[in-house]
Simulated scan of single mutants.
Amino acid sequence: MRSLWLMLCLGLLAFSQVRAQDENLDDLDLGDIAEFDENDEEFLRLLEEKSKNQDVERENELASKLAEVQHNLLNPVVEVDPCETMHCGAGRICQLNEDKPECICIPDCPKELEIRRHVCTNKNETWSSDCAVYQQRCWCDIKDPGCLHPDNAHLHIDYYGACHEPRTCDGEDMKDFPRRMRDWLFNVMRDLAERDELTEHYMQMELEAETNYSRRWSNAAVWKWCDLDGDTDRSVSRHELFPIRAPLVTLEHCIAPFLESCDSNNDHRITLIEWGACLELDADDLKERCDDVQKAVPHLLG
């Protein structure tokens, strides 16, 4: 019986490789194990207590590791590409420079062999693609050697397709154009409202225009101006006028000279006051109420 107890004790001691925390167990001398008689039960009790302590420690360690894994799963460390939140205008792409995002000109544009991809600029020049036009604008803006002419910094697309002989906008057509433009803007705003494709803010403006005739044209003018102001700098560039100009230029031959006339100070940007004056609206009726128009479902003709 004594040898059985001895083998059990030795096996338990060999199995344990962690330093005993219990001082009583540390003081045991294996050479004296043969002398144990009445103290055998106390010795086994100490071994059992040590084993329980080790089990608790292992369980706590496993629980701690499990909690860490669960935390990492629920709160993963996501490396965000800085370029994902960097907005670059047309003709530019984001590139990291020493881990900092910066906008650079598009280095290469795909070669477009399809004539349908050609575009006509405000200089009545046919370019191979819209990318080529935007790239040229960027190069001229930063004075890159690829710039063909300094004026190309303000180059923009008039319409898609090769250039054709423009029709002349005579005096009477030009004189009546602001009225046609006002009506067109209101009708488009109303159509989008009927399709529930305006933000709540502009839905309210459209409803006001329906019930208050004096707000009909001014509300539509403010809505479209806000819609065109893509970079929300409270002015519309000639480039940002493209969504209006491109689809209408073949239908309304006065659209190009009309939009050019809106830039009264020739700074290549159109303020809300200039926009209203162009549409022959009273400046007092134009109240800037631009909300986050980018949240609207569509971007008209854009």
Rank of each mutant, 00 (worst) to 15 (best):
122 N>E: 09
265 N>C: 02
12 L>H: 11
130 D>S: 14
170 D>G: 06
238 R>T: 05
48 E>L: 13
173 D>H: 03
60 N>E: 11
102 E>M: 15
123 K>L: 13
105 C>F: 02
284 D>W: 07
292 D>W: 01
103 C>F: 01
245 R>H: 08
27 D>Y: 11
281 L>V: 10
218 S>Y: 03
138 C>M: 07
126 T>D: 05
217 W>M: 04
71 H>E: 11
221 A>P: 02
225 W>C: 05
41 E>S: 13
183 D>L: 13
33 I>R: 01
289 R>H: 07
160 Y>I: 10
189 M>K: 09
37 D>E: 14
21 Q>A: 12
155 L>T: 01
66 L>M: 09
268 H>Y: 10
253 H>S: 08
39 N>T: 14
120 C>W: 05
247 P>M: 12
206 E>M: 13
255 I>F: 07
245 R>C: 11
121 T>S: 14
235 S>W: 08
267 D>T: 14
25 L>F: 06
288 E>H: 08
234 R>N: 14
66 L>Y: 12
18 V>G: 05
4 L>F: 03
200 E>W: 12
172 E>D: 09
24 N>V: 10
164 H>R: 13
33 I>G: 02
138 C>E: 11
95 Q>T: 11
223 W>A: 03
126 T>A: 03
258 F>Q: 02
102 E>R: 12
117 R>C: 00
152 N>F: 15
185 L>G: 01
212 N>Q: 10
104 I>E: 04
47 L>A: 05
